[in-house]
Deep mutational scan, measured.
Amino acid sequence: MISLIAALAVDRVIGMENAMPWNLPADLAWFKRNTLNKPVIMGRHTWESIGRPLPGRKNIILSSQPGTDDRVTWVKSVDEAIAACGDVPEIMVIGGGRVYEQFLPKAQKLYLTHIDAEVEGDTHFPDYEPDDWESVFSEFHDADAQNSHSYCFEILERR
């Protein structure tokens, strides 16, 4: 099963200049909980913004210009990325925008964090048809001392 995991502000903004323009430790914990011990696929820009392999996960970098870091697996196509994951129950696609666009048609599940923030962004989550998805989990949280904005975790499964 292919799943996408993303944090989205208003207007589906997911990033600005290779960074997330908010401070939500709870979302980072949600991300870790849902990706640990699963292969993660990301684009080169996302890889560069993280700066290191995510521990406890097979890191697969999709790029037309593969790098030389041998701590991760470099691939040039969506099919190659899927094959590099091996026989696993769930593959997690973690961004960025172009990689989400490439995998959305193949995805069966979306793990979304909806952030109540209007922020400037240069990267967006692809538009998706809500009628194609069923919400199977939703959990709202107010902003607090650690988390700069209110947010809602949601899991959607393709109908």
Rank of each mutant, 00 (worst) to 15 (best):
S77L: 15
S77R: 14
E154L: 15
V88F: 14
Q146D: 09
Y151G: 09
S63P: 00
M16G: 01
I60W: 05
D116H: 15
L36C: 02
G51F: 09
S138Y: 03
R71M: 06
F137E: 11
A117G: 06
G51L: 04
V75R: 10
N18A: 05
A26V: 02
V93T: 08
V88A: 11
I5F: 04
P105Q: 09
D70T: 10
I82P: 03
R44D: 02
E120Y: 13
H45Q: 07
I50G: 00
F103A: 15
E129A: 10
E80F: 11
F140S: 14
L62K: 02
L112T: 06
S63C: 14
F137C: 15
F140T: 14
I60Q: 02
L4A: 02
S49Y: 01
D69Y: 10
S148I: 01
F153L: 13
P126S: 11
W47A: 14
I41Q: 01
A29L: 08
V99T: 03
S135Y: 09
E101W: 12
S150C: 05
E139A: 06
D116M: 15
A6C: 11
L62E: 01
I82K: 09
W133F: 12
A83Q: 07
S138F: 03
D144V: 05
S3Q: 02
W133Y: 12
M16V: 13
P105T: 11
A83F: 11
E101S: 07
E118T: 14
L4E: 00
V75I: 14
M42F: 14
A19R: 02
L112M: 09
A84Q: 05
A9K: 00
D144I: 06
D127I: 14
V75H: 07
A117W: 01
Q108Y: 07
N34Q: 14
C85R: 07
G121W: 00
P39I: 05
I50S: 00
D70S: 08
V10S: 05
T123I: 02
A29W: 04
F153K: 05
Q108F: 08
E118Y: 11
W133M: 10
I14L: 15
R33G: 02
F103R: 02
M20T: 00
N59T: 09
C152F: 09
W74K: 05
S148P: 00
E48Y: 12
V136A: 12
R44S: 15
